[in-house]
Structures are given as C-alpha cells and as structure tokens.
Design a protein around this nucleic acid. Structure first.
Lengths: 359, 359
DNA sequence: CTGAAAGCGCTTACAG
DNA sequence: CTGAAAGCGCTTACAG
C-alpha cells in the first residue's frame, strides 16, 4: 500500500510550509496574502500528485465531522427510502455525508445506534424516533448537537419537527368516504402511542363523531407478522358485517388488508371501499386502483434539510425558536373509494356466509 | 457545549497513564498484565462519566475508519433498498458503519462520490458500478482497498463479484412462456451494455433461438421518463400485433409496461402475457398477479458482506483468488403468464384497432 | 508575505 | 505491572 501524500509531503517538495499549503487548499490564500505564484505552484502540484486531504484528520482538528445521521424506522420502506434519497442529495450539496440506519422502532437498538453515532462525532441528527429515547435526545441537545425530528416526534423533547397533518389527512379520507355514501367506516391502525398514529386516529374519530356514525377500530401490534395481520383484518370484516369501508393507517397495513379482502373474495368498492394512508407508486396499478392520503415526500425531505442546516449554521448563536412544521397531505381519489350505484350491503353478508361454510 | 471527556482526562482523574486506560478500554489489559483492581477502577469511572471514545481520533491513529461505502443505482429502488437494509445490519454486526449513496448510473457523479469516500478513508467498497469507472476502481485496488462489485460488474476490473444468474433467469422466463403456448414473445429492456442487461438479453435470445421463434426486442434509454417508456411500449405492442407475451428486463420497466397495457385495455394474459424480471412485493396484488423472476435479495446481501469481510481480514496477506459468485434466480409463476384456454389472438388485434379509431 | 509549533484524541513501541 | 512520548494528518493563533 503506497503511503498517501500528506500536506506535509507537499510542503517539503515545494519548499514551503504546510501552513501555506493548507491556506491555499482551503481558500484562505487571499486573506493571508499568499502570492499568486505560490498559490499557483501549490495548486499545480496538488493536482499533479492527485492529493486527497484526509477528512478524518481535518475533522479531528476542526471538531466538525461533516457527517449527519438519519434514523428511520426501516430504510427499505418506500416512504422512508424515498425521503432518504432526497435528503442524501440535498445534504451532499451542503458538503455533508449521511449515515442511514433503521431503528425498527426498537428503543434499545436506537439507543445503541445513537451511541455509535456520537462516537463518530456526527454533526447533526435527523430522526423519526421510536418511543423511549427522550433521554438520549436530551443529551444531544445539551451538547448543542442539532436534532430534527420528523414523521413523528417525542413531545417532551424540544426540537424543530417536520411533520404532516396526520389528523387532517385521516379526517379528509373519512369525509370523502362519507360523501360517497359509506355508512360504517372501519379504521385499521397500529397499537401505538406515537404522535403520527394518535393524530390519524383522532382525525378518523373526529369525522366519525361529526356524522354520528359508528366507530369501528382494529388495532394491530407493531411488527405483527403479515399473515397474522391479514387474519386479524379478515376477522374484523367478519365480526362487523355492516362495515362498508376501511381506512388503513399505514401503507403496509393497507397491503395486508388488500390481501385479506381478496382472500374473502370481496369486491372493492362494491362490498367494501378502501382508502390507504401514505400513497404508493403501485396503488394506481392495483385492481381497482386504491385511493390514498399522499404524503408530500419531497417537501418533507427538503424541509428537514433546510431546518437542520439552519441549526448547524446558527449553532452557538442565540438559538431560534423550535417549531413544528406542519405539511399538508393530499387525498388522491381512485376507484377503490367511489360510490357504488345500487350497492347491496347484503352481497357482502352472503359472501361471508359462503366463505365460512366452505372453509 | 461542555467539553467531552478524553482518555487523558480519565487518566488524570485516576492518577494512571492514558496508556493504561487505553489498554483497559481496548481489551488489551490482560496481555499487558494490568492489575484487576486497576481494570475495575477504570471501567467503573468510564461508566460513571459516560465516556465515549472519539472514533475519529481512533481512526486517524489506526488508519481504519470502520466505515464502508455502498454505491447503488438508486437507494430508493426496492431491490437496492432491501439489499442495503440487510447489508447495513450485517456490517453493523462486524462493527462497521456504512455510507450509502445513489450513483444514478451516472459516471461523473460516481467518480465524485468515490473521491469523497476516499477522503474519508473508507475501509471498503460495495458497488453496483455504472459504466466508465474502471480507472477509479483500479486506483482503489492499487491502494489495496477491498472492493466488491455486485448486481453487475466491469469485467476489466478484477474483483470478487456477487451476481445473479441473469442469463438463466431470463431463459427460464421465456421457456415458461413457451411452455404455456405463447408464440411470439417480446423483450423490453434498456439500452445498456452493462453485464446484467446483456446477460438477460442473451438468456432471452437463447430461448427464442432454441424454439426458432421470432425475436422482438424493444430497447428503452436509461432514465427515460415514465410516460415516454409507456408510450414506447404502446407503440411496440401496436407495431407487433402478433406478439402475445412480454418479458420485462427490470422492475420499473414492468410497471411502465403494465400501465401501457392497461391504457390499451388489453387483458393479461388473454391478450398479452407478462413476466417481470426482479420480483416486487406488490406483484402478487396486481390484477392479475404478475409472474416474475425473483432475485435472492437476502443471499446477495449476505454474500456481499461475507466476501468483503474476508478481504478486509486477509488484506496484506496473499490475496485469495477473485471470483464471480453466481446466485440462482427463482421464477415465481403467477396468473399473468399462464396458458389461456381457447385464447383468440384476434381479440388483441381488434382491440388495438378500436383503440386507434377512438383516439 | 510566510513559517514554526501546538494541539485535536487516540494507540503503541519502547523503556523501566 | 505501568508510564512517557511519538505520531496519525490536519488547522490556526502567533510571531516575524
């Protein structure tokens, strides 16, 4: 392994001091009145030998690692991976690299991850927090390390948060179903006290109460196996024969729900209307295409980076007020939630009866 | 910002040398015969003050950053994001963190990325290479930095490569369609000389030649806008009215193709059978469910990490032979490619005629 | 206009 | 059994 050339090697070769080389390399030549000729000489030589500064040494000296970390629930989830992709690009434009990691919504795993990132002197945190890491985030804030929460947030931790209007999104979805004549709308969600889930539930409840409809909620444990979720939705449908529409609180719940509905041979929306929360590139290709509450992925990613960069720049100065940045959702109406002319509720009841007999 | 405690601070507090503290912290206490009491004292104090070693300093000193980098085409693509997720977890178990980045299959962007990663003294590279970065990879090899190529590879660069049996996968897909009675099978692929694309094309051609069928290939530019791809597939279908089946060379080509087929109001598989390359969680929910050549995502990720760790461990020693690790694909048969009893080819011809008139 | 020197926080060969 | 000291590759306050 050939030894890398260092700033010192360059200085020696050129018979100048490493100070001079450093100044030239960091654009501080002018303010230190390095002669044009010297600047040129250094730059030429650097290019010739293909010198690459050692960012590790730089970071150790300056205390800035130029690395951010982004903690999401699951980096392979389409929602989080598309946000990550954009954040990666935007942060790169500011000279930052990003460590991504999946928390799996697991408190202990996340604590371990944060420990590792702190050892690496990460300059800022973008995190969709699992429950129970209030203390770790407070520690970061005490050390004046910028933290942005997004997607959901721990209310006890005072940071700037980038979130979407979960309540409004769920509310508008239910309202849309009501306007299309659905009478008993079920809500399939997670057993979760996280803000985004609570808000979606509240949006659902608000719309239901306003129309004095019956509240029908199924709560599935987090990280429930797919088959088990499908079974729960099946039972939910059978236990509530009058239910004529379903709102799913997350993308993957909707997918499992669709499998369950298919296995019961129910028609969408004839037997049961469907709306998902968090749109999916493929929803439009399903048969029928699935209505969904879309999240503004691009806007979320941009806002996260903008806010974090603001904090990094103003660190040390009097901190600006922390705030919740609330982004609007958009209901994308497709066929799965439209009114069905002459819909017979009985169709579904019979269907279920047959199913039970045949199985 | 309270100053972090360093190993030196600890040594001072405990009235020992920083050497001793370092030995204890790095499990080298025994081989240096540090007394049990001292070890205990150090460990206690470290825990009490919540000392976190500075990995930057450690890396600078040892020359190991304990960071890997993974360059894929698009980190938000389901194939790459699920592999990344697994690689992240496996590498973490070995104490490594990973920088992920999207090359967008762009040569210049990738060169810039590699430059940045080299500055960060990354310990190893996992890369699905775009064309034209042979020289950069050679530079890495000269510096004895481990490199693994996966998904596709630059044949000029002698590294260990983890790839799938693209030829066999495409071959078996076409064979399956032939067995189900399809007579003219089209292949929609990318304009690309990359190994994985060439092999898929060759697999298609091999099966077509064996049965003396007509070769019908559509090549779409890389990063073609979705609408344009859809339009190309529509024209492809109209220009080849006798074509009764389509094999798509990538996931997203299949998605665009399905949109095109839907817009022509063609039935799958009645008018046109469909097989995709690279399975997708949602293919089973499409109507009809889509047959696909599935890639062994878990196996790919595991193999990539195993191979890279081998190289890192054996670096300096006589390097083991580079090899191509070829993983098998699996054809997942769903309804979109099955034989249609009493299928009338004319159905599609008429359909297209109607379409042209009405538009 | 330019350079010598300290120091960021570690590890480790060497000495005792 | 333990410590003093050098050095990884940078930046920057200070001196001239």
């Amino acid at each position: 392994m050939k030894k890398k050339t260092s700033i010192h090697d360059i200085a020696k070769q050129l018979n100048v001091s490493s100070t001079t080389v450093s100044f030239v390399l960091n654009g501080k030549a002018e303010e230190n009145r390095i002669s044009k000729e010297l600047q040129y000489k250094v730059l030429e030589y650097v290019k010739k030998v293909g010198y690459q500064p050692n960012q590790l040494a730089k970071s150790l000296r300056t205390g800035k690692s130029m690395i951010l970390c982004m903690l999401v629930e699951d980096i392979s989830d389409p929602f989080f991976s598309s946000i990550s992709r954009i954040v990666e690009t935007k942060a790169f434009e500011h000279g930052y690299k990003i460590f991504f990691a999946s928390t799996e919504n697991d408190t202990e795993k996340t604590k371990a991850l944060i420990r590792v990132f702190r050892e690496r002197q990460v300059d800022g945190y973008i995190i969709a927090p699992p429950p129970g890491i209030e203390e770790e985030l407070q520690d970061l804030l005490h050390e004046k390390v910028p933290v942005i929460q997004f997607d959901r947030f721990l209310p006890e931790v005072k940071t700037t948060n980038v979130i979407i209007d979960n309540l409004g999104g769920a509310y508008s979805a239910v309202q849309h179903l009501q306007e299309n004549g659905y009478q008993q709308i079920g809500f399939v969600t997670l057993e979760s006290k996280q803000t985004q889930m609570q808000d979606r539930l509240n949006g659902y409840l608000k719309a239901i109460k306003e129309k004095k409809q019956k509240k029908v909620v199924l709560k599935v444990p987090y990280r429930n196996p797919n088959e088990s979720t499908q079974e729960k939705v099946r039972l939910f449908l059978q236990d509530n024969p009058a239910m004529d529409a379903l709102l799913f609180a997350t993308n993957y719940l909707a997918i499992d729900g669709l499998v369950a509905i298919a296995s019961l041979k129910l028609n969408i929306p004839g037997n049961i209307a469907v709306v998902g929360f968090d749109d999916n590139t493929h929803f439009s290709l399903f048969s029928p295409p699935i209505t969904a509450v879309a999240q503004p992925v691009l806007k979320i990613a941009e806002e996260v980076v903008v806010q974090l960069m603001n904090k990094i720049k103003s660190s040390g100065k009097n901190p600006r007020k922390e705030e919740n940045i609330l982004l609007p959702t958009q209901l994308i109406v497709r066929k799965s939630s439209l009114a069905v002319p002459g819909k017979k509720l009985n169709a579904r009841l019979e269907n279920i009866k047959n199913e039970s007999i045949s199985s």
